[in-house]
Write a protein that binds this DNA or RNA. Structure first.
Length: 1041
RNA sequence: GCUGAAGUGGUGGAAUUGGUAGACACGUUGGACUUAAAAUCCAAUGUCCAUUAGGACGUACGGGUUCAAGUCCCGUCUUCAGUACCA
């Protein structure tokens, strides 16, 4: 009987589905354990072998926990709103819902064939109305809430209205917009409803405001900060610019401190926590207010301006010699003097033209302009010139700084550049070359009441003095900005919002979901409105509470008499992270039981939060921060009972592809030389240079019969190793050269010119990637297949470095696995050829879970061979050969060694080492010719989380009628591992020379006697007397001579 | 620049509190079986020297601590990831 993995795997996958083997219960006596994967976006390309890595790891853990007696929740679903389906819709007109449905089918088929123990009865899809109804509902809850800084939690907006109407807002300690108008209770009660709503909007946790946003013209939408990488969009790499737009925002800044503190309570990696800490960016300091000195030439009605700055170094306040405002700062236009206006305007214009990316690329250039205005130093009352400069960012702090050139390098450089005074306020510091930026071991000088104090004391005193003047206070600043929540896209959650007189109104819960309207095209409208602007039926009728045709919206809703109660609906949709910020709660309820809540109280109380979450590190500052924010909010409002969504989190490393690189000759030229080149010893001279444009590499060759390398000046690049491999291998180079000569069909005269050094040959080569599926394990390209392959059409004339017998060898380059690099390996093929169990084992065997590692299909034969060996251990020619034979000592030792190691490995997520442990166990038991059921059956249970199909099959062949997944994990018994002797390594001066088998219970003295009497010891010592003998019983003997 | 992680055979990677470096695989080489191939099995495989016995070197580089260092300490270099005028 052979190991027919395809049949076995299909059989058990069917069994699990039919018996709902992995269905979790919401009522169980067992302890609960919730294992979650970051759910995938179902892309059209399907899964490649990199995707399941994390799923396999979490599946092993989930299965292990079941063996250990836990009630395990291990669900899966789809993050099915998103850009690719929409882009595809724009190109083809196909509705994204259809594309998504098709892609999900492919994903499900691929996931099923790998044998995951998912409970599919709880599946979620973020793009279904039954799901996004609750995303809309959470949005409404955020709208109906404000953040009370006194109770330090979110509260219902009604409590705020109550305060406003009884005492005004002067004493409200809330997180709100910066420029809040102060009013009394009387004033509040007299405000018009519109005015009241306008004010409330400044307090709500999601709010509509004109904000400076990241606008991506190529994508036609705004992007959140975490969707921008290096100044370009994360998706597609398009340029991004700053633009003022009215958008929905999430007041995540209200939770900055709690998001920071919460990190200490969860088991995440330090690097991930560090990323979040940096993103939140807490800095403690003071805010200081500077009065602008009124200019003499200003008009009769004098206006007094104040500039507020944030500083982490209030102790250096006497070192201020100028102030710098961001060019976008709102005061700039008001304080600039007429004489300086032209210069300032020119500077503002120049900086506004620079894109974010240019600004980042060019940090070195110092630029700025003097406004002509002066501020007054709060203590010395000296005038301080006010400058503008683009090193001050409008988006951080107040967009203005007090510049202390002696203590801050950027201020220092700016002052040097513009010849501004650099007063030194540090005792004994040398500031002739650079600013003195250290806080430690220095005393403040030339600073009035701060003289002689250290950083800590001076900071405290400076803040105190500022408070006395009413010109400052201690303040904590966060880098974390409120998150823009609108997207100008079609394929996202519609907002449950309509507008009356321009003010947003929420639609009642009972009328949700507001489903996406149909549009005839998925592009923005001609007038620049989002795609929903194309919908004909997209207005809200407050009489019937239904979505109705746009044409019914009364044209002059401003006049209440003509108001027919039909209003326009919001045209934006929600961003991708909306649906993924709470999906883990939705899984807590089976689809069939989902009722009138996003999850029932019982389910929420039972499952609490995710015990183990596995996914990619790319979500460090996006999804993982937003989810934490929403969970904290839901907790504040009493909708859930937990403060953090994910207790433990592991980032799986990326599986990299091994691209196949060949070389395409893009251009060849022969130029005659004025002076013939002196050809030495029949050599060919080659020089290579990398061109500045494109990816081409230019190669000059002066030809003779044999190749020699004259010079190379290669710059590093993605393809450098493959190119230099080509150019440093003379035989490859020679072949390439001959290929070129033959292909060109050169005239004999030119050929001889080249060979005589009278002409130079220049060619340009471009490394191209060849689909890895057309290359075998020996790096040979299947040329026939390549020429007919769809990805080759551009390269039909491609030249290869050919070896003998028409084989073409490619170079290799490890890079991200992606369709674009033609290096994608499909798990379907692997499952078909080797089986899902082999795939699972191999992905784990590749290396540590959290580490990036290259995929190499050739290596899978190792684990596949192991499974065949395992099969042969249980099943002989004539059926199962496992019996009730008494296990031998060796059998038990092998088994219990394995139990111990595997259990430790799983708990430490060291899955790669447990695969080797299984291999060792099977090798040993095969050697021992073990047939004992008492040993072989527990071994199956140990292995079943990793290779569930083959173990189910063998388990049933041993006579079991239940699924192996319900079997308890074998108990480790240390008594089987007790050794009676130890093979001691005998070292001389720390170098191991030979080993010696000695009894475990031998005393130190006896060990010494035995070792010293040994003939090899005597030979090693060669008559010398050892100085010292180190004996560590059970470990080592070291003789120092 | 800053923060974090990491540098071990031809390759992926093992190595518990400092205690036999290179487990387990891939690859390579040789052999068995076969008409042949595949599959399977056996053996060798860090580098160098040596006919053998054996020896020298060896965990990025340079120092140090220790009877003993891949592991601990100091310095240097390199790679990867994240982040960046954050006041």
């Amino acid at each position: 009987m052979q190991y027919h993995f395809n049949d076995i795997e299909a059989k058990w996958q069917k069994y699990w589905a039919e018996n709902q083997t992995f269905k979790a219960s919401n009522t169980s006596d067992k302890p609960k354990y919730y294992v979650l994967d970051m759910f995938p976006y179902p892309s059209g390309a399907g899964l490649h072998v990199g995707h399941p890595l994390g799923y396999i790891a979490s599946d092993i853990y989930a299965r292990y926990k079941r063996h250990k007696g836990f009630n395990v929740l291990h669900p899966q679903g789809y993050d099915s709103f998103g850009l690719p389906a929409e882009q595809y819709a724009i190109q083809t007109g196909q509705h994204p819902a259809i594309t998504t449905e098709t892609n999900i089918k492919t994903y499900r088929r691929q996931l099923d064939q790998i044998g995951f123990s998912f409970d599919w009865s709880r599946e979620v899809r973020t793009s279904t109305p039954e799901y996004y109804k609750w995303t809309q509902w959470i949005f409404i809850q955020l709208f109906e809430s404000w953040y009370n800084n006194t109770t330090n939690k979110a509260e219902e907006i009604s409590s705020l209205i109550k305060i406003f109407s009884t005492e005004g807002n002067a004493n409200v300690n809330a997180v709100c917009d910066d420029n809040i108008e102060i009013f009394s209770a009387e004033q509040w009660n007299e405000f018009s409803p519109e005015k009241q709503q306008e004010i409330l909007l400044q307090y709500r946790l999601t709010y509509l405001a004109e904000t400076e946003v990241n606008w991506c013209p190529a994508l036609g939408t705004v992007l959140a900060n975490d969707e921008i990488v290096n100044g370009v969009s994360e998706r597609g790499g398009h340029p991004v610019m700053r633009k003022k737009m009215t958008q929905w925002s999430m007041r995540i800044s209200a939770y900055a401190e709690r998001l920071l503190q919460g990190l200490d309570t969860i088991d995440w990696t330090d690097s991930l926590k560090e990323s979040q800490r940096n993103w939140i960016g807490k800095s403690v300091g003071a805010s200081v207010t500077f009065n602008v000195i009124p200019s003499v030439s200003s008009s009769a009605v004098e206006t007094y301006h104040q500039i507020e700055v944030f500083t982490t170094r209030p102790d250096t306040i006497f070192g201020v010699s100028f102030m710098t405002l961001a060019p976008e700062h709102e005061l700039v236009s008001q304080i600039t003097t007429p004489e300086q206006k032209a210069e300032v305007d020119a500077y503002i214009l120049a900086t506004s033209k620079r894109s974010e990316r240019d600004r980042m690329a060019d940090v070195k250039t110092i630029s700025g302009a003097f406004t002509g205005a002066y501020a007054e130093h709060p203590f010395s009352k000296e005038p301080i010139p006010i400058w503008i400069g683009d090193y001050v960012l409008a988006g951080y702090g107040t967009g203005a700084v007090m510049s202390v050139p002696c203590g801050d390098q950027r201020d220092y450089d700016f002052a040097k550049h513009f010849n501004i005074d650099i007063p030194n306020i540090f005792e004994g510091a040398d500031i002739s070359e650079a600013a003195f930026t250290s806080k430690d071991n220095v005393k403040i000088a030339n600073s009035d009441f701060l003289n002689g104090m250290n950083y800590k004391k001076a900071t405290k005193r400076a803040i105190y003095e500022l408070e006395q003047l009413g010109q400052g206070e201690g303040k904590t600043n966060y880098r974390l900005r409120d998150a823009v929540f609108s997207r100008q896209r079609y394929w996202g959650e519609p907002f449950p919002v309509y507008y009356v007189n321009g003010m947003p109104q929420m639609i009642d819960k009972q009328h949700l979901p507001i489903t996406l309207p149909e549009v005839e095209k998925y592009l923005p409208t001609e007038t620049g409105e989002p795609p929903l602007g194309r919908a004909d039926v997209w207005a809200w009728d407050t009489n019937t509470n239904t979505v109705v045709s746009n044409t019914l919206v009364s044209s002059s809703a401003v006049e209440t008499s003509k108001d027919n109660g039909i209003y326009p609906l919001e045209l934006n949709t929600m961003p991708g992270w909306a649906g993924s910020s709470w999906y883990f709660f939705r899984y807590m309820e089976e689809k069939a039981n989902r009722g009138e809540d996003f999850a029932s109280k019982d389910a929420l109380n039972y499952w609490e939060n995710v015990d183990l979450y596995i996914g990619g590190s790319e979500h460090a500052t996006g999804h993982l921060l937003y989810s934490r924010f929403w969970v904290k909010f839901l907790k504040d409002r009493g909708f859930v009972g937990v403060e953090e969504p994910f207790k433990k989190l592991i980032n799986q490393g990326m599986i990299l592809g091994t691209s196949a690189i060949a070389f395409n000759i893009t251009n060849v030229r022969v130029s005659k030389l004025k002076e013939p080149y002196k050809v030495d010893n029949d050599k060919i001279y080659v020089s290579i240079e990398r061109l500045n444009y494109g990816t081409d590499t230019k190669v000059n060759v002066i030809v003779s019969k044999e190749i020699l390398f004259e010079s190379t000046n290669m710059k590093s690049s993605v393809n450098s190793s493959a190119i230099s491999e080509l150019h440093h291998d003379p035989s490859k180079q020679n072949k390439l050269f001959n290929e070129i000569l033959n292909t060109l069909n050169l005239e004999e005269e030119i050929k001889s010119d080249l060979l005589e050094g009278k002409a130079v040959l220049t060619y340009y080569i471009n490394p191209i990637r060849i689909d890895v599926n057309l290359v075998n394990a020996s790096d040979e390209v299947d040329v026939e297949k390549f020429k007919s392959h769809k990805t080759s059409k551009d390269y039909l004339k491609a030249l290869f470095i050919s070896e003998e017998n028409e084989t073409f060898i490619v170079g290799r380059e490890v890079e991200k696995m992606s369709k674009r690099w033609l290096n994608v390996v499909n798990p379907d093929n692997i499952c078909e050829q080797y089986g899902a169990d082999s795939l699972r084992l191999y992905e784990m065997f590749l290396g540590p879970l959290e580490q990036a590692k290259p995929w190499n299909t050739a290596g899978i034969t190792g684990v596949h061979g192991f499974l065949k060996k395992l099969w042969k251990l249980y099943v002989g020619e004539n059926g199962v050969n496992v019996n009730n034979a008494e296990p031998t000592k060796d059998n038990l030792k092998s088994l219990h060694k394995t139990i111990k190691k595997v259990q430790e490995d799983i708990e430490n997520f060291s899955f790669n080492t447990s695969v080797s442990t299984f291999m060792i166990a099977v090798n040993e038991l095969t050697q021992q010719k073990c047939t004992s059921k008492a040993v072989l059956e527990p071994l199956l249970v140990l292995l079943s989380p990793y290779a569930p199909h083959i173990t189910e099959e063998l388990y049933s062949q041993l006579g079991n009628t239940t699924s192996i997944s319900t079997a308890p994990f074998p108990e480790f018994d240390a008594s089987h591992l007790v050794e009676s002797s130890k093979n001691y390594p005998i070292s001389f001066n720390g170098k191991m020379r030979f080993t010696l088998e000695l009894p475990m219970d031998m005393s130190k003295d006896d060990i010494e006697k035995t070792v010293m009497a040994h003939e090899k010891t005597i030979a090693q010592l060669d008559g010398r007397t050892p100085k010292k003998i180190i004996i560590v019983p059970g470990k080592i003997v070291n003789i120092v001579g």
